[in-house]
Design a protein around this nucleic acid. Structure first.
Length: 569
RNA sequence: CGGGGCGUAGCGCAGUUGGCUAGCGCACUCCCUUGGGGUGGGAGAGGCCGCUGGUUCAAGUCCAGUCGCCCCGACCA
């Protein structure tokens, strides 16, 4: 391919609204353009890289006995009503109507579609297990699209769904998929970590996120030396041992205009670890109180998942006053004005002689003890994990945090969808059973962005060998020179005949411009052909990741051999 | 949805106390020059100054509305 023939509109400066390095570089490199918020056009160079990622994923899915299909991008409402997700999915779901006023949604994932396909065409245990996958554009009306193609409203996803006769078979296959996903990450050249995760709107019992480690990542990962890793949304927290202090008698103290844990702690000279915060939440319209230790915060995702609620948020000032009888900052589980469900986080169940509000303006209570002074209805792990927490797995190590970009997510769905959509098969006894499902998603467009986040320098993108849009760029310093042209063509023919993608920068530009652009678009290997070295029969080979001192002077055939060796051709 | 900011050429920006043909750099076309890390010079092409309405002799500039974009804030591949 000739550079002059390909649409690669490189830019010296990135548009001012590009917010992260990968978006800036992709736009500058002429790979993508933005059409509107969260909507991007892929230009030839960008699409070429995207196809390379697709190829890797496809190979791994096929190796795991997956079969490729394509489902519609648009689904009728009825299918989504069956699983209840039409109502549960919320504002993120793009909805539309046809000319007959029939309602549809644009697929954010395709559990409904695939389950419908399978229930209509699979009826016997003999046809299981089955894994179907597709590459499809997915739509999500994000609250705030940002970070270029990292969080777009329309993106390319590989979504796969597996169907099994029972949990044990799903378990077996889940491990195979876990390996396949690890392979995809490795082949893309990622530094990554697979962590336990919350299932969100997809549902199911258990899930793993594949995180590309990057400081710019949106996700926070809690991990331990023992190998435990989890999204902080999900990471489990252990209860604390009892303080075993002698129980003192309840005391009311005046704390004028002092509401926050920090200020009351200072005022009373008591550690926040002795405080019980009483948070009033509204879950699907019902109010409840959640108790957590003063120095911790509630993890609303854990709470929502524990309650099985679709919507959870903190109550407003008026509701708090109505329930506790006091303004915000003075709530207590002791003598709540209105009787509501009280859930205690594991961090508070062993605190004796605690400090709480008094459900009365400007007053707090000291020496509060569960059982004697108040009762909670139930206890659960509902708080946010913090750095230094004891690891919930090995129970020894201390938790540390890292940041990551979520590029893949695997779920054990169980029978959530097969149950609501009646996807069944007949077993050897002729008895009807629900299929057990798994589902597996990879953000294909996001992989591209994640790669660049993890691999770039001040001059541009540095593609890893496997997903570079071109493996080699040949830069003839002066393409008008006959000898240069001849050598260029010869090298090009030899490399392309082995199946490599090679770009020739045939433009009548100065060498500097060609080098700058080659660095910007990040092609892994550059062959420079100039009259200066050609008189001795030499050309230059340079890896993008190396600096100028990495330039090797070689004979054309040596350079070709070296590149073919790198790519195992 | 709340708070803050911005819409002027493909990209980056100036111009905003109302005033005459709306400017600069990069990119684009042509000529000369240069020719191994974004040469130098010259001549060009390209704008409903986001949109609608108002104030005015006169609006990119003032007023109102509206749309779009970005940033900061609680469910995501």
């Amino acid at each position: 391919m000739y550079f002059s023939k390909m649409l690669i509109p490189t830019l010296r400066e990135a548009p001012s609204d590009a917010d992260i390095i990968s978006a800036k570089l992709m736009i500058r490199a002429g790979m993508i353009r933005k059409l509107a918020s969260g909507l991007y056009e892929f230009l030839p160079l960008g699409l070429k890289a995207l196809r390379k990622v697709e190829k890797i994923i496809r190979e791994e899915m096929n190796a795991a006995d997956g079969q490729e299909v394509t489902l519609p991008l648009m689904f009728p409402k009825e299918l989504w009503l069956e699983t209840g997700r039409w109502n549960v999915y919320g504002k993120e779901l793009f909805r539309l109507k046809d000319r007959k006023e029939a309602e549809f949604c644009l697929a954010p994932t395709a559990e409904e579609g695939i389950t419908d396909l399978v229930r209509k065409n699979i009826s016997s245990y003999k046809q299981l297990p089955l894994m179907l996958y597709q590459f499809g554009t997915k739509f999500r009306d994000e609250i705030r699209p940002r970070f270029g193609i990292m969080r777009a409203r329309e993106f390319l996803m590989k979504d796969g769904y597996s169907f099994h006769v029972n949990e044990a078979d799903l378990e077996k296959y889940y491990k195979i998929m876990f390996e396949a996903y690890s392979n995809v990450c490795k082949r893309c050249g990622f530094k990554f970590r697979a962590v336990e995760a919350a299932s969100g709107a997809i549902g199911g019992s258990f899930s793993h996120e594949f995180m590309v480690l990057a400081e710019t990542g949106e996700e926070e990962i809690a991990h331990c030396e023992c190998g435990y890793g989890a999204n902080t949304e999900k990471a489990e927290c252990l209860p604390f041992n009892s303080y075993n202090e002698e129980t003192l008698s309840l005391e009311e103290v005046l704390t004028p205009d002092i509401g926050s844990v920090e200020s009351v702690s200072k005022f009373l000279g008591a550690s926040p670890e002795k405080f019980i915060k009483t948070m009033i939440y509204i879950a699907d319209g019902k109010s409840l109180a959640v108790l957590v230790r003063g120095d911790f915060e509630i993890n609303e995702i854990k709470l929502q998942s524990y309650l099985g609620a679709t919507e959870v948020f903190l109550a407003d000032e008026n509701t708090i006053a109505d329930i506790t009888g006091a303004p915000c900052g003075f709530a207590s589980p002791v003598n709540l004005k209105k009787k509501i469900r009280i859930i205690a986080d594991l961090s508070v169940i062993n605190i004796n002689n605690a400090v709480t509000g008094a459900n009365k303006k400007d007053y707090h209570l000291k020496n509060v003890n569960a059982g004697r002074d108040y009762k909670y209805d139930e206890s659960a792990d509902l708080r946010k994990i913090v750095k230094g927490d004891i690891c919930p797995r090995c129970k020894k190590g201390k938790i540390d945090f890292s940041r990551g970009i979520e590029i893949g997510h695997t779920f054990k769905l169980g029978t959530k969808y097969s149950d609501s959509m009646k996807a069944t098969y007949l077993d050897t006894n002729g008895k009807e059973n629900l299929m057990v499902m798994g589902c597996y998603g990879i953000g294909v467009t996001r992989i591209l962005a994640a790669t660049i986040e993890q691999s770039h320098d001040e001059n541009g993108i540095i593609w890893t060998d496997n997903i570079a849009p071109f493996e080699v760029i040949i830069v003839p310093v002066n393409f008008a020179d006959e000898k240069t042209k001849e050598v260029t063509q010869k090298i090009y023919d030899e490399l392309t005949s082995k199946g490599l993608d090679v770009l020739i920068d045939d433009r009548d530009e100065r060498a500097g411009i060609k080098f700058k652009d080659a660095d910007l678009i990040g092609i892994p290997y550059r062959i420079t052909i100039g009259e200066k070295n050609l008189v001795n029969g030499n050309i230059e080979l340079k890896a993008r990741k190396d600096g100028k001192d990495g330039i090797k002077l070689l004979k054309p055939e040596e350079a070709v051999a070296e590149i073919l060796k790198i790519y195992n051709k």
